[in-house]
Simulated scan of single mutants.
Amino acid sequence: MFTAYLIITVITILANAGIAVADFLRAEFVVANSTEVGLPQNWLPWLAALKAAGAAGLLLGLLGVTAIGVAAAAGLVLFFIGAVAAHIRIRVYHNIVFPGGYLGLAVASLALAVVP
């Protein structure tokens, strides 16, 4: 079970760190997506910081600080539930798979972190 936890959590860390960098750099696809769902552009650095913090917390969890890893995974689950909800609220479904994928990774990381 640890192998699954390790693999899924590393993938989740890399995915969230990568999208956090894209948010910080205001990549064209990030700006287009956030505009489409009605997100103010001045929120991007704050959301990027939350994603980066989640990735860092997951890494700490892998390094043995289990409570931080679980809290980070739970935080990312809540974050991406909000992202999916924003897509649904505005009825932007054509790219909902992206926040849905991040949500799936966060849920898997959380589930595997709490399984004995």
Results as ranks from 00 to 15, higher is better:
Leu78Pro: 01
Leu78Ala: 15
Leu78Trp: 03
Leu78Asn: 03
Leu78Lys: 01
Phe79Lys: 05
Phe79Gln: 10
Phe80Cys: 01
Phe80Asp: 00
Ile81Pro: 03
Ile81Asn: 07
Ile81Val: 15
Gly82His: 07
Gly82Lys: 06
Gly82Leu: 06
Gly82Tyr: 05
Ala83Lys: 05
Ala83Ile: 05
Ala83Arg: 02
Ala83Trp: 04
Ala83Pro: 11
Ala83Glu: 09
Ala83Val: 06
Val84Gln: 12
Val84Ile: 13
Val84Ser: 09
Val84His: 10
Ala85Glu: 08
Ala85Pro: 05
Ala85Val: 15
Ala86Tyr: 05
His87Asp: 09
Ile88Val: 15
Ile88His: 08
Arg89Ser: 14
Arg89Trp: 11
Arg89Ala: 13
Ile90Ala: 12
Ile90Val: 15
Ile90Glu: 14
Ile90Arg: 15
Arg91Val: 04
Arg91Tyr: 06
Arg91Glu: 12
Arg91Pro: 01
Arg91Ile: 01
Arg91Leu: 06
Arg91Asp: 10
Val92Gln: 15
Val92Phe: 13
Tyr93Val: 12
Tyr93Phe: 14
Tyr93Cys: 03
Tyr93Glu: 02
Tyr93Trp: 13
Tyr93His: 10
His94Lys: 13
His94Leu: 08
His94Thr: 10
Asn95Arg: 12
Asn95Phe: 11
Asn95Thr: 15
Asn95Cys: 09
Asn95His: 14
Ile96Cys: 12
Ile96Val: 15
Ile96Met: 12
Ile96Asn: 09
Ile96Asp: 03
Ile96Gly: 08
Val97Ala: 15
Val97Leu: 14
Val97Ser: 15
Val97Gln: 14
Phe98Cys: 04
Phe98Glu: 08
Phe98Asp: 04
Pro99Thr: 03
Pro99Met: 04
Pro99Leu: 07
Pro99Gln: 06
Pro99Asp: 11
Gly100Arg: 07
Gly101Asn: 11
Gly101Pro: 04
Tyr102Phe: 15
Tyr102Cys: 08
Tyr102Asp: 01
Tyr102Asn: 06
Tyr102Trp: 06
Leu103Phe: 09
Leu103Ser: 03
Leu103Gly: 00
Leu103Gln: 05
Leu103Met: 11
Gly104Ile: 07
Gly104Cys: 10
Leu105Lys: 04
Leu105Thr: 07
Leu105Glu: 01
Leu105Ile: 09
Leu105His: 00
Ala106Leu: 06
Ala106Cys: 07
Ala106Trp: 00
Ala106Phe: 01
Ala106Lys: 01
Ala106Asp: 07
Val107Leu: 15
Val107Tyr: 02
Val107His: 02
Val107Arg: 01
Ala108Val: 04
Ala108Trp: 10
Ser109Trp: 00
Ser109Ala: 15
Ser109Arg: 04
Ser109Val: 04
Ser109Thr: 11
Leu110Asn: 00
Leu110Gln: 01
Ala111Gln: 07
Ala111His: 05
Ala111Ser: 09
Ala111Asp: 05
Ala111Gly: 15
Leu112His: 05
Leu112Gly: 02
Leu112Trp: 06
Ala113Ile: 00
Ala113Glu: 02
Ala113Tyr: 01
Ala113Asp: 00
Ala113Pro: 00
